Computed example of a mutant assay.
Amino acid sequence: MQKWIAFGIFSILLLGGAGAVCAKMQQPPPLTAPAGQVLQHSSPDGESDTSRKTSKADFEVTNQTIHRAHFAADYPQIKGLTGVLAEENINQDLENIIRKYSEDMTTSDKLNLSYEVASSSGDFYSFVFHGMLTQGMPNGAAGESFPVLDALNYDARTNSRITSENLMKSDKKSMTAFSKLFSSYAGKDAKAFGDDMGVYFTDADVVFYFLKNDAAVGYTQVHIPLVEAKPFFNDPIQPLNK
């Protein structure tokens, strides 16, 4: 009897046009590994997910994988965060990263995007997205490729989103002192610190990233130990003005 019920359900799904084939998954590696290593197989035109809870964080990260004709992307969703509204807002931010890079793509473009959880303990949570966007050319000619590096950061105490703009103190004395600290880690060839730079956190460092120029083949990343940088952070960090 169970055999015929299972066969009936399969027939209904087949006739209903379900195009996604369930992904075959393996046990995911530690949470800090690139998400591209978490999902070993996925459907050719669908979404799959897997998850892992780490003792370092008070939430679970579920990996979502999307495969389309011209792009493949991984992005995280979180579960179990204290505060339902904060969890919904963060998940929307994380999903919007995919839209940010894919919504204006044409069928001649190609995007590969993955992520890692760079920090999930201490004062900050950081989700770092990296990959490559290739813009195709007419008649199948080779396109131009651009590196992708983007990050979403949150204050573990308030769940407020963090960028360079609301992270750093803005008074003249603090900015002057931090600019000197930044230059000491960036080296002579890097440009001066600006609050328009991207930022993310590891458990040990704050990392600022930027493109030196339009021809740069990758992002410059400046790692500064948190113990040295924290005196220049706003406390508390105020929510961004939207």
Rank of each mutant, 00 (worst) to 15 (best):
residue 127 F to A: 06
residue 127 F to W: 10
residue 127 F to G: 01
residue 128 V to M: 10
residue 128 V to D: 04
residue 130 H to Y: 14
residue 131 G to W: 04
residue 132 M to L: 14
residue 133 L to D: 09
residue 135 Q to W: 03
residue 136 G to C: 11
residue 136 G to K: 14
residue 136 G to R: 14
residue 137 M to K: 15
residue 137 M to S: 12
residue 137 M to T: 10
residue 138 P to Q: 10
residue 139 N to S: 13
residue 139 N to H: 11
residue 140 G to E: 10
residue 140 G to K: 12
residue 141 A to Y: 11
residue 142 A to I: 12
residue 143 G to I: 08
residue 143 G to Y: 09
residue 144 E to P: 00
residue 145 S to C: 06
residue 146 F to D: 08
residue 146 F to K: 15
residue 147 P to D: 08
residue 148 V to A: 01
residue 148 V to N: 00
residue 149 L to G: 02
residue 153 N to Q: 08
residue 154 Y to D: 00
residue 154 Y to F: 09
residue 154 Y to N: 00
residue 155 D to F: 07
residue 156 A to P: 05
residue 157 R to A: 12
residue 157 R to F: 03
residue 158 T to I: 06
residue 158 T to V: 06
residue 158 T to D: 07
residue 160 S to I: 00
residue 160 S to R: 10
residue 161 R to Q: 12
residue 162 I to Q: 03
residue 162 I to P: 00
residue 163 T to Q: 03
residue 163 T to G: 02
residue 163 T to E: 06
residue 164 S to L: 03
residue 164 S to H: 05
residue 165 E to A: 07
residue 166 N to F: 02
residue 167 L to R: 04
residue 169 K to T: 02
residue 169 K to P: 02
residue 170 S to T: 13
residue 171 D to W: 02
residue 171 D to P: 05
residue 172 K to P: 00
residue 173 K to I: 06
residue 174 S to D: 13
residue 174 S to N: 07
residue 178 F to K: 07
residue 178 F to M: 07
residue 180 K to G: 01
residue 181 L to N: 06
residue 181 L to R: 10
residue 181 L to G: 03
residue 181 L to I: 06
residue 182 F to C: 02
residue 182 F to R: 03
residue 183 S to L: 08
residue 185 Y to D: 05
residue 186 A to D: 05
residue 186 A to C: 07
residue 186 A to K: 10
residue 186 A to L: 07
residue 187 G to D: 11
residue 187 G to N: 12
residue 189 D to M: 09
residue 190 A to R: 14
residue 191 K to Y: 09
residue 192 A to F: 11
residue 192 A to K: 15
residue 194 G to T: 15
residue 194 G to N: 15
residue 195 D to Q: 14
residue 195 D to V: 14
residue 195 D to H: 11
residue 196 D to V: 14
residue 197 M to T: 01
residue 198 G to H: 04
residue 198 G to V: 12
residue 199 V to G: 02
residue 199 V to Y: 10
residue 201 F to R: 15
residue 202 T to L: 15
